[in-house]
């Protein structure tokens, strides 16, 4: 059988995590869990791109501090974001004196970077790796959609890119939730052309990875306290539940979606949050906290990414999706 799931023998620990969000996100459902809420979206910078970069720098520094490490203890940075040529991560990496691996999995980047980092750590090649992703509403909006001041209405299936950055330190030693498994996903495209309907475009990828994961690990949804997707949103997560049901697997109350949970009802975000920052901030605040408290024992975290670009969609291409899954278990003494 073909194996796309990795089982980590040494089980790398997540020894520090940090999340930073924008003001609107700071009013959302997870507001008390975030480490830092920015006063405004510029974060003291001149442009939104510079603000996103500074968020990444802040998140990386914060995660290293919370892991009680020094910057010199870090071996590698694995990071990515949504902008062309992942400039926010690459430019943020200039500020640090360790090697940098840029990864791009659109909104699935958090799981992708943790999976890559865990593999490197588990292999015994590196001791401490820091992972980081971020997204910013205003930079994503101008790159993928329209200028901010344009007076248009957002279609009802659209989602709101979360302004936020999340970072965590993966380590061989120390105490913290363990990364026990990772399933790397295939690129799946079921021909959705509507760029405003990311949830529908990414749901088949989530299904594909989820099926592969359950099959490879011989687990069922009941083996997890929480199965959480990244930013399928309200519509996409409903589609995923339907798709899984067609395959004979029922996702129950332990399934939820970061994007769907992120904002409050009255925040006008239509189908919920999206972007790298959406699941990255939730994972590095809320989910980590619950794992440390022991409220969750075993979490399956599988954010999805829509690998589109404006050029490709203007040429009539459909939106391909990808989904990477990681299993994080609470630390045991």
């Amino acid at each position: 059988m073909k194996y796309d799931t990795v089982k980590f023998k040494k089980q790398p620990k997540i020894i520090g995590s940090y999340s930073i969000v924008g003001p609107k996100e700071g009013q959302g459902n997870f507001r008390e869990y975030f480490d830092y809420i920015m006063k405004n979206d510029f974060f003291g910078e001149k442009t939104f791109e510079k603000a996103e970069r500074k968020m990444i720098e802040t998140a990386i520094t914060g995660a290293i501090q919370k892991a009680k490490l020094k910057v010199s203890d870090i071996n590698i940075l694995v990071a990515g974001d949504l902008l062309n040529q992942i400039i926010s991560s690459s430019y943020a990496a200039r500020a640090f004196d360790f090697p940098y691996l840029g990864v791009y999995g659109a909104c699935s980047t958090m799981a992708e970077s943790i999976a890559v980092a865990s593999t490197l750590v588990d292999g015994g090649y590196f001791e401490n790796i820091v992972c980081c992703t971020a997204s910013h509403f205003s930079t994503a909006e101008r790159q993928y959609r329209f200028p901010l001041e344009l007076g248009n209405q957002r279609p009802p299936a659209s989602q709101w890119t979360v302004t936020g950055a999340g970072s965590c330190v993966i380590s061989q030693k120390g105490a913290g939730p363990r990364v026990t498994m990772a399933t790397f996903g295939k690129v799946v495209d079921w021909g959705i052309v509507d760029v405003n309907n990311m949830g529908a475009a990414m749901a088949p990828a989530a299904m594909d990875t989820l099926l592969a994961h359950f099959e490879n690990t011989k687990t069922t949804p009941d083996d997890y306290d929480l199965i959480v997707t990244g930013d399928l949103g309200k519509l996409g997560s409903e589609i995923l539940i339907d798709l899984m049901e067609d395959k004979g697997i029922k996702l129950g109350l332990n399934y939820s979606d970061c994007g769907q949970m992120f904002f409050r009802r009255n925040q006008n975000t239509l189908c919920g949050g999206s972007g790298c920052g959406c699941c990255a901030t939730v994972f590095n605040s809320y989910i980590m906290k619950k794992l440390q408290d022991g409220q969750y024992k075993r979490v399956l975290f599988l954010p999805t990414g829509a690998l589109l670009s404006t050029t490709a969609s203007q040429q009539g291409e459909s939106v391909p999706g990808v989904c990477h899954a990681i299993v994080v278990e609470a630390y045991e003494m």
Binding site: R142, P147, L148, E149, L150, G151, N152, Q153, R154
Partner: peptide, 28 residues
Amino acid sequence: DKIGKFAGGGSIVPITGFSNSITSPSIE
């Protein structure tokens, strides 16, 4: 953009919408 979010076509179709569509990318 707030008027536009509320009114949709009501503020796109008039000449003001044309002006908005030129000014907004300029500022952005």
